[in-house]
């Protein structure tokens, strides 16, 4: 009897729930379409993003209970030099990435832009190839090439008759640059394609008109191409910088941040704090800094982007 009653109650509840849901979706059908995405988006992106701030004021070893400890994590994280060393390395990576990936990328894009379609296609494909490889694999291949005893680079240097034999990733002064070279190898091609997309969006007739007005190639580039590329340039620059602040794989696979902390970056330091030293609160405190930096850069991108678009963007 009672089970029957419970069953019918349950059924009533269920059917009314269905009815309510149905009416909600009938009145506001957009939620039916938004809900599935939100069910993943909220718990696995939005809440963790807010959670960084929450976690940063707790002590937690990854095991057992968390205990509130105020600003202790921040004090400990930011009185150690290593976090500043890491931050500085990220800034160095960002600078060189701007010069090498974005800068050289632009030059290459201008060169390729003038080739016939078939050649252009060839270059686009070969230039993009490194980007499609997984960074772990790229790091390993370069780690192999950097090997001082039997790596390709030192073997070639030796074959050329030089007795210079750099230690590359094993050297305190070279490790970071060795990593920057790998990042440049993998991402410059991608920047070239981005620049090409920007160049393609320039109206040919403007350049033609300038040519007829007697402007030389350098003048045309300076006064027409460059200003029109500005929105793309902002986009490329800022995403190159953001990418540099998020560096992890190359460093982790090739040097683990070493020798010493010579190639330590923010993300490897966060990783070490959390997963090697079991200090999740302190890792979250460092993540807060990284988050703020990336957020500011993104906002800068939006602002500059908006100004460039002159409000024409919807």
């Amino acid at each position: 009897m009672s089970t029957q009653k419970q069953g019918s109650n349950l059924r009533a509840v269920a059917s009314s729930a269905v009815a309510i849901t149905k009416s909600v979706f009938e009145e506001r059908p957009h939620w039916l379409f938004l809900l599935p995405a939100l069910l993943i988006y909220l718990p696995f992106l939005v809440i963790p993003a807010l959670g960084i701030f929450g976690l940063s004021v707790f002590q937690w070893s990854g095991l057992g209970d968390m205990s509130f400890n105020g600003i202790e994590n921040f004090v400990r994280a930011f009185t150690s030099d290593i976090v500043y060393t890491s931050l500085w390395h990220n800034i160095e990576i960002a600078f060189w990435s701007l010069v090498l990936q974005a800068g050289v990328g632009l030059v290459l894009a201008l060169v390729i832009y003038r080739f016939s379609d078939r050649w252009r296609q060839f270059f686009q494909v070969t230039y993009l190839l490194p980007m499609t490889l997984m960074s772990v694999a790229v790091s390993m291949v370069w780690g192999y090439m950097y090997n001082p005893s039997y790596g390709v680079l030192n073997t070639v240097i030796k074959a050329l008759g030089s007795d210079w034999s750099p230690l590359w990733i094993g050297s305190e002064s070279q490790a970071l640059y060795a990593i920057i070279i790998v990042a440049t190898w993998q991402w410059t091609g991608f920047r070239v394609i981005l620049w090409l997309a920007g160049l393609d969006s320039i109206d040919e007739s403007l350049l033609e008109a300038a040519r007829i007005d007697g402007a030389g190639p350098i003048q045309r580039f300076r006064y027409i191409t460059l200003p029109l590329l500005k929105p793309v340039a902002i986009f490329i620059s800022i995403y190159t910088i953001i990418g540099s602040f998020n560096s992890f794989v190359y460093v982790w696979v090739m040097t683990r941040g070493g020798p010493g902390h010579a190639s330590e970056v923010m993300v490897t330091w966060i990783y070490k704090n959390a997963f090697l030293q079991s200090n999740f609160g302190r890792a979250a405190a460092i993540s807060v800094l990284l988050f703020v930096i990336v957020l500011l850069l993104s906002l800068l991108n939006m602002r500059l982007g908006d100004r460039e678009a002159g409000g024409a963007n919807p």
């Binding site: 988006y41 992106l45 960084i52 992890f248 966060i270």
Partner: peptide, 21 residues
């Protein structure tokens, strides 16, 4: 949704691990 653009996965490492745990 667009705001998600501004949050790179690397930043979420620690809290996401905590949630999955």
């Amino acid at each position: 949704f667009l705001a998600g653009f501004m949050i790179p996965p690397q930043v979420l490492l620690v809290p996401l691990y905590t949630i999955m745990n």
